[in-house]
Amino acid sequence: MVKTKALKAAFPHTIPVLTGFMFLGMAYGILMNSKGYSVGWTILMSLIAFAGSAQYVAITFLTSVFNPIYALLMTLMINARHLFYGISMFEKYEDTGKLKPYLIFGLCDETFSIICSAEAPKDVDRNWFMFFITILDHGYWVIGSAIGGFLGTMVSFNTQGLDFVLTALFVVIFVEQWKSQRNHKPAIIGIVCSVLCLVIFGPKSFIIPSMIGILAILMMMQSPNENEKDMAEGKVQ
């Protein structure tokens, strides 16, 4: 009952991801198929790696000379942005009990962005609500890529541009966050720092410098307030 309610509350939030993952997952399955990897491999990869962009890049690891260390290091680079999601969710996931390992396992871009902005309704269990958002997104990705793997190259359709649905999702969440906050500095820092690093370091290696820059600026912004707080508390004592 608790779970059904949480599932019903979670599902509408995941509809944009359903659209995006069905398409991107299918495209991934079709691509794997075209490289000679049967649907079983595609499902295994989507199930245990569950990382869109890294999985696309991994196709190049699977079609070149066997080099597992390179595969590991490239994956760490591509997915470094997840470190931010973990820090952001550290307290939100703190009291999630037995669901916690899975919530962390499934914390992809899309799930992170939904859980950031979506609050469970009052009468819905918050932990199960977050669990269902995570597992629905994971499920869409696995099913989408499995369909692609099964269909192979039999399908041809003009879906050019459909992958923009995920960009659209992130833009909408950015606007939602903007509307909900008076302090726009963190959002502006995120955009400006990333754009500057993209211009300086290029699309392949801007993520890690951006993350360092964002963290450094955010921490610098914190310190004066902290001192004020400490001083205020000191006065009271």
């Binding site: 942005r81 952001s88 550290f90 939100k92 950015f174 906050q181 963190p186 993350m211 955010l218 902290e226």
Partner: peptide, 17 residues
């Protein structure tokens, strides 16, 4: 503090990404 501010920066980074 980071839990409060970082999600906003992270979504900004994600849009640029």
């Amino acid at each position: 503090y980071l839990g409060e501010v970082l999600p906003y920066s992270a979504i900004g980074l994600l849009v640029v990404y």
